[in-house]
Design a binder for these strands. Structure first.
Lengths: 196, 196, 196, 196
DNA sequence: AATGAATGAGCCTTCATTCAT
DNA sequence: AATGAATGAAGGCTCATTCAT
């Protein structure tokens, strides 16, 4: 066992443990000990690397957003038409990597916590802005700016809404249905349209 | 002064205090003392009437849902066409009584808590079912059952999504814009349609 | 056991327990549990009444100074000549009530803590000012203002010095010797003097 | 670069860091990490060289006393008359090297700690004995043994008292005033006297 | 009907200390 | 010689809850 260079490993393990703990409990009311235990370390070590619980939670949220962002970028890079770009953004939100019970639970918990913590709120605002601009990157090729804005807004709300409604359902999240709903909306708004 | 009949008054006061406390804090992490203080009573009394914090929170959520339900019934009673019924249900969700920062915050907090508490989850499922059936009561007059189901689902998700996105915004909630978004969606789905 | 009006009793008991705990440990490094235990209550109750450890310590220091002040006022009230007033002030500092191992230990501990805590520093400055003015109330009848100031300063330093040196000795503090030293100093400075 | 001979350098650096840390915090409540950080090494190394925090503190106190002792010896070596010897001892106590805010703070902190730690108490007793005997080395040439003892005792208390009272004052310590006070006392006790 | 009094349990956090490298 | 990694132990503080009055 190498005794050096553990920091990135531990940070990763702790963040993963945080997601899994939040996912299981379904809220941010998880103890540092619980998280540390899942990561196989002492709670003291978690403090050593993250300073405080707040910061661990913050780092975790940032990590989730960062993953989502990476996935989205990758997906966008692989798409051609404007219409496809929009679908790609939606698809990533409900991809296997993102639409996991644990991640969904964490997501919601952070949304609520954002009402208390301005740091988290800032983070989620960045996410919202990114989502909007990613959607716009496709929509502006099809609709007028004004219409595109509105559709992007609705799509984002729809995505978040489908996430939150997952909290009420048990069992595996049904990504396919969720995607279908959003695509249906998009289709009625975009079909037959194209900017002159 | 007769000390009789205090119970309903106290219960109401405590529930209102709970909503206001949750609304201000933005989460369910409010203490019994805080709540009791706002209601002008001791925390011991809150326990006396509700037994435990969980139950007070549960009663509060039930109260919110009950209010929403009452408002919705009243609104539906006053409407005529199927199309109007759908709009009425949406309108109530964003009415001045419901779309208050405090209520929105409480709503979200309960959504998250529902992941932990099966009692709350059951409550929220009832809400979801009611919302669905209220929307359906209008939609089935316009669309096929299958389509109506889908549109009801999307509308509900849209409403919840717009609620959650309020968490990121400061200042007064903009009900008009929210309604416009939902109505826009409904319009594209329903305009020109009518069951044969 | 009366269940009402406990607060003053508990506060007093906790402050006494604090003095005794500090006295035994010889420093402010006493735990809230230790203090609460000595007072026969839970540490939670100590927090309930004092809010935080700092405040309990502060209240304790204030109590010690207040006792000293009371004793001094009483002693001064019972004295006649200027010379006697000076001796009275000195005598109180080494009286049985004040010159107890526990109180001495607490005194020193607070002196050191004052270097960190500005609240405590303020408190001790008040003590210093009072001691000075009490000494002056006698000395100004015998010496010029300038000389009186200096003698008061030296006397105060002597008293504090004798307190601090108690920390090195074991067994019962020898008040008599301490008083003799200070009186000897005063005698050489005051004997045969009197303001014209 | 040879890594040899680092030990004395590190020990010195750590002791200096300890004084400076205590001086800044104003108490012994400094962490090993803080001290090690100031010395530019890891806390593990501090343990490597000193075994435990107690021992580092002990070594630090011993170092301070040793410096004082060295300074005093040097000063005494350079003086002639008995009266001058007394003044020399006093002067060293308030010399620029000793009467530094940091050192004063450390001094007091150790005094308090001595109530807990018998090792430190022993150390401070040695200091007290040395100070006494150094003062006596002058005083016995002027006063009777009995009188000399008493004056030495008072002088020592005066010095310690002036140290402790520094804790209440902000800004730079005023050595001149302190010395003047002690000298004034000595003058009234010694002027015109000389052993037959 | 109502509350002051009181506490047990639990959590975050800190820190001296150890150990493998 | 030196340190990053890691932890056990302990302390302050909070809070839901109980109980006697």
């Amino acid at each position: 066992m190498p005794k050096i260079g553990m920091e990135p490993l531990r940070r990763k393990a702790l963040i993963d443990a945080t997601i899994s703990a939040i996912g299981e409990r379904g809220s941010l009311d998880v103890t540092m000990s619980e998280i540390a235990g899942r990561a196989g370390v002492s709670s003291a070590l978690a403090h050593h690397y993250f300073g405080a619980k707040d910061e661990l939670l913050f780092a975790t949220m940032r990590h989730i957003l960062s993953e989502l962002n990476t996935d989205t970028r990758r997906a966008l890079r692989a798409t051609g038409t404007a219409r496809q770009r929009v679908s790609a953004v939606v698809a990533v939100s409900f991809s296997d990597d993102q639409f996991q019970p644990e991640t969904i639970a964490a997501w919601l918990a952070f949304y609520v916590e954002a009402q208390k913590s301005s740091a988290l709120r800032r983070l989620l605002k960045i996410y919202a802005r990114r989502l909007h601009s990613n959607l716009m990157s496709g929509l502006t090729g099809i609709l007028s700016r004004r219409e595109a804005d509105r559709v992007a807004e609705a799509t984002a709300a729809l995505i978040d809404g489908l996430y939150i409604r997952r909290a009420l359902k048990d069992g595996v999240p049904d990504a396919a249905t969720a995607i279908a709903l959003v695509e249906d909306y998009l289709e009625t708004k975009l079909s037959g349209r194209s900017l002159p």
